[in-house]
Computed example of a mutant assay.
Amino acid sequence: MSTVIEQAVQARLISSAPQLENVPATLHYDRADPFAVRMAFPPPATLEGIEVVWTFSRELLAAGLDESAGVGDVLVRPYGYGRTVLEFHATEGVAMVHIRTTELRRFLKETQELVPDGTEHRYLDVDQDLAELLSS
């Protein structure tokens, strides 16, 4: 069984322009980092022309599907029927994207089948993490 889940999604970039722009993105979950979800945007979808990856908690993503969640750099909230908004705050500005809630729920279901909620601590390699921390 694979220990990594990746799911391509279509995100709609919200901007001051009248039209919403579709951008590809990839959701990534790795059992080796069981509390985190990563969302990657490829170079053509970013202002810098390089891949941009945001890391945030799986719990935040799940909570934001039903009500506003998050404090700080990543905020997640439901938006109308069938959409979820993810807000990414950086020093350069704020990026907001809409994603179909069904895609996010499917992704979360797969992550929970791999690592059920409440069992994340069983997948941490504390000894390895401590060794890496002490070696640097």
Score class of each variant (00 low, 15 high):
Glu59Cys: 01
Arg105Gly: 06
Asp117Gly: 11
Thr111Glu: 13
Leu104Phe: 09
Val97Gln: 07
Thr111Tyr: 08
Ala69Leu: 11
Phe35Lys: 01
Tyr123Leu: 02
Tyr79Asp: 15
His89Thr: 12
Asp127Trp: 00
Glu103Phe: 14
Ile5Gly: 06
Leu114Asn: 12
Pro43His: 11
Ser2Val: 05
Thr119Cys: 12
Glu87Thr: 12
Ala63Asp: 12
Gly49Ser: 06
Met1Cys: 04
Leu86Met: 14
Leu114Ile: 12
Glu110His: 14
Ile99Lys: 11
Gly49Trp: 02
Thr111Asp: 14
Glu92His: 00
Tyr29Glu: 13
Glu67Pro: 00
Ile14Asn: 10
Met96Val: 07
Asp125Glu: 15
Asp66Cys: 04
Thr3Leu: 06
His98Gln: 14
Leu134Pro: 04
Ser68Ala: 11
Val76Ala: 13
Thr91Arg: 01
Thr84Leu: 01
Ile14Cys: 09
Gln128Trp: 05
Ala95Glu: 01
Pro44Ile: 05
Glu132Asp: 15
Arg58Gly: 02
Leu124Phe: 08
Pro18His: 09
Gly49Phe: 01
Glu51Val: 13
Gly64Arg: 02
Leu75Lys: 05
Leu47Gln: 07
Ser15Asn: 02
His121Asn: 12
Met96Pro: 00
Glu92Cys: 02
Asp30Lys: 02
Val85Gln: 11
Pro43Phe: 10
Thr55Asn: 12
His89Gln: 10
Trp54Cys: 01
Glu59Ser: 12
Ala32Pro: 10
Val53Asp: 08
Asn22Phe: 04
Ile14Met: 07
Val126Cys: 08
Leu61Ser: 08
Glu21Gly: 01
Asp73Lys: 00
Val76Glu: 04
Ile14Leu: 13
Met39Val: 15
Ala36Val: 09
Ser15Gly: 09
Thr119Asp: 14
Glu6Ala: 01
Leu134Ile: 15
Ile14Phe: 15
Ser135Glu: 15
Thr119Asn: 12
Val126Asn: 08
Ala32Ile: 05
His98Cys: 13
Val76Ser: 08
Val115Lys: 06
Thr111Ser: 13
Arg122Ala: 11
Leu61Val: 15
Phe35Val: 10
Glu48Thr: 14
Thr91His: 02
Phe88Ala: 06
Glu51Ser: 14
Leu75Gly: 06
Asp129Ile: 13
Thr101Asn: 14
Gln112Glu: 15
Glu132Ala: 15
Pro24Gln: 11
Pro34Glu: 03
Ala63Thr: 06
Gln19Arg: 02
Tyr79Pro: 04
Asp129Thr: 11
His121Asp: 15
Ser135Trp: 08
Ala25Asp: 09
Pro78Cys: 09
Ile99Leu: 15
Thr91Pro: 03
Ser15Trp: 00
Ala90Phe: 02
Arg58Trp: 04
Leu47Arg: 05
Leu104Val: 13
His98Val: 09
Arg105Met: 12
Ala63Gln: 09
Asp66Ala: 09
Val9Gly: 01
Leu13Val: 02
Asp66Met: 02
Asp66Leu: 03
Ser135Ile: 07
Thr102Trp: 11
Leu86Ile: 15
Asp117Leu: 09
Arg77Asp: 11
Asn22Lys: 03
Val76Met: 07
Asp127Asn: 13
Pro42Cys: 13
Tyr81Val: 09
Val23Trp: 03
